[in-house]
Computed example of a mutant assay.
Amino acid sequence: MEHANYYHFAGRHAVITGGAAGIGLAIAKRLAAGGASLSLWDRDAGQLEAARTGLGDARVQCVLVDVSSEAAVNQARDATLAESGKVDILVNSAGITGPNVTVCDYPVAEWDQVMQINLRGPFLTCRALAPVMRANDYGRIVNIASIAGKEGNPNASAYSASKAGVIALTKSLGKELAQTGVRVNCITPAAVRTAMFAQMTQQHIDYMLSKIPMARFGMPEEIAAMVAWLASEDCSFSTGAVFDISGGRGTY
C-alpha cells in the first residue's frame, strides 16, 4: 500500500512493543519512513532479526522482552535509553487473542495470560516510559486497543475485557499527563488480517467480518497511517482519546 503523506520524525526515537510483526511492524516501517529511530520490543528473537533486516537502512535496536514482566520491561527501558538517550514515542502493539470460547468454558490460566500481555503489558510500559517523556516535557503514547473493547465480542471475553481496560488506561493516563507535553491516545481497530488470525477459529473470523460495513478486513498499513498522526507533533490537542478505525463498524 503506497502512501503520499509522511510525518516528519527526524530526531525522534520510538519504542514499539510487538514491533517484530503484524501491526507493530507496519507501524515501525511507517515511523522509520518519516525518519524516526526505533527500538522494537518483542519476545520473538527470530522475528526481531527478520524485522531489523526488513527495515533496511533505518536505525533499529531490537530488544527481547516479555511485556508482562515488570523486571523485563524495566531492563528494556534501560537498554533503550542506553542506546537512544531518550524516548519520544511509545506504541503498545503487543497482544494475543486468547481462545475463542464462552465465558463459562474459558480456562482461567488462559484468561490470566491474555490480561498479562494485553493489559498489564501496556500498564508496565507506560509506567516505565511515561516518566522519561515527562522529564523531557514531550512524548506521544499510542495504545492499540480494539473495537472488541467497546462492543464485547462473543467468545472473546478476555480479549474484549483486556482491550476495554486499555481504553480506560489510556483515558486515565491522558488526564494525568494533560498539563505536560505528553499526549496519550488509543485506537480501536476492527479486525486486521495478520498472523494473529492463526490464533482464532474460522467461525470467529467470519463473525468479525460480518460486522464490518466495508465488508473487508483492515490492512496493517492503514492502522499505521492513523498511528503516525497520533505519534506526531501535529497531535497536540487530543489526549485520553479513542480513535475508531473499523471500516464503519464502530457505533460510538
Rank of each mutant, 00 (worst) to 15 (best):
G240I: 02
Q179V: 01
G46A: 15
Q75S: 07
L119W: 00
M200W: 13
G98M: 07
M208C: 14
I245W: 01
A231P: 00
Q179P: 03
P213D: 01
A109V: 12
T194L: 10
G247N: 09
G139L: 09
G34Y: 12
F197G: 07
D88V: 05
R140H: 00
V101F: 14
S93K: 08
A191I: 10
N100Y: 15
Y7R: 08
Q199E: 14
Y138K: 07
A130I: 13
G149Y: 02
I212C: 02
S238G: 06
T180F: 09
E233Y: 08
E233N: 08
M219K: 13
R52E: 07
D112M: 09
G95F: 09
R30T: 10
I147P: 02
T201W: 15
K163S: 11
P220Y: 07
A168Q: 08
V114I: 11
G34W: 03
Q47M: 12
M226T: 03
A130R: 06
R140Y: 01
K86D: 13
R249S: 06
Y159K: 05
Y106C: 05
Q47P: 00
D88A: 10
V108S: 15
S238E: 03
N118A: 12
H8E: 14
R52F: 04
G34E: 03
L209P: 09
R59P: 00
S232D: 08
H13R: 12
I141A: 11
F9Q: 00
H204G: 13
K29F: 04
S146Q: 04
V242S: 11
L209A: 13
R216H: 11
H8Y: 14
G24P: 00
